Computed example of a mutant assay.
Amino acid sequence: MYIVYGIKNCNTVKKSLTYLDEHKIAYRFHDYKKEGITKAKLKDWSSQLGWEKLVNKKGSTWRMLDDATKNKVTSETKAIELMMEKTSVIKRPLIENGTKVIALGFEEEVYHSIDW
């Protein structure tokens, strides 16, 4: 079963969940706000994708950070600390199949190309 990580009220997450529902793809939703995220999970994703892809620098959470905080995010360790503290800064949705990340964000063309 797929696990979709995100925040329930995020528009991009809503688009992703709608896509999955319309295509009858079974998933479990993991809400960062309610369930949090572990350091081990973030390290695993970082090893698969690179921490730079996980930090959503286009989102409002990142934009609201002060420059000193932004400037500290120069390594995986610092990025993971920030993502654990402010889960809204994690790019979303992130979809896992077992332990493998199969999608980050929502692009319909990419979803169409996945062998669900």
Rank of each mutant, 00 (worst) to 15 (best):
M1G: 14
M1W: 08
M1F: 07
M1N: 11
V4A: 13
V4G: 03
V4Y: 01
V4R: 05
V4E: 03
Y5P: 06
G6W: 09
G6E: 10
G6R: 07
I7W: 08
K8N: 13
N9R: 12
N9H: 09
N9I: 08
N9Q: 14
C10I: 03
N11F: 06
N11W: 05
T12V: 05
T12S: 06
V13M: 06
K14R: 15
K15Y: 01
L17I: 10
L17A: 09
L17S: 07
Y19P: 01
L20P: 00
D21Q: 14
E22T: 01
E22S: 02
H23Y: 07
H23V: 02
I25M: 12
R28M: 05
F29D: 07
F29K: 07
H30Q: 04
D31H: 01
D31G: 00
D31M: 00
Y32H: 08
K34A: 14
E35S: 06
G36I: 04
G36H: 04
I37V: 15
I37S: 02
I37T: 04
I37Q: 03
T38M: 02
T38K: 00
K39Q: 13
K39M: 04
K39R: 15
K41F: 08
L42D: 00
L42S: 01
L42A: 00
W45G: 02
S47K: 15
S47D: 15
S47C: 05
S47P: 04
S47V: 09
Q48Y: 02
Q48K: 03
G50K: 08
E52W: 06
K53M: 14
K53H: 12
V55T: 11
K57Q: 14
K57D: 07
K57N: 10
G59T: 07
G59K: 08
S60Q: 13
T61F: 08
W62C: 10
R63D: 07
M64F: 12
M64R: 15
L65T: 02
D66G: 11
D67F: 07
A68G: 06
A68H: 10
K70M: 13
K70E: 09
N71R: 12
S75Y: 01
S75G: 00
S75F: 01
E76Y: 11
K78I: 10
K78L: 10
I80M: 06
I80N: 06
I80W: 04
E81N: 01
E81Q: 04
E81C: 00
M83Q: 02
M83F: 01
M84A: 04
E85G: 11
E85P: 07
E85Y: 10
S88E: 05
V89G: 06
I90C: 04
K91C: 01
K91T: 00
K91R: 11
R92V: 00
R92N: 01
R92A: 01
P93Q: 06
L94T: 13
L94C: 13
L94S: 08
I95T: 15
N97I: 08
T99V: 11
V101G: 00
V101Q: 02
V101L: 03
I102C: 10
L104G: 02
G105R: 08
F106Y: 13
E107A: 12
E107C: 09
E108T: 15
E108L: 05
E108Y: 03
E109V: 11
V110N: 14
V110K: 13
Y111F: 12
Y111M: 11
Y111L: 08
Y111P: 04
H112P: 02
I114H: 00
D115W: 05
D115N: 15
D115I: 09
D115H: 14
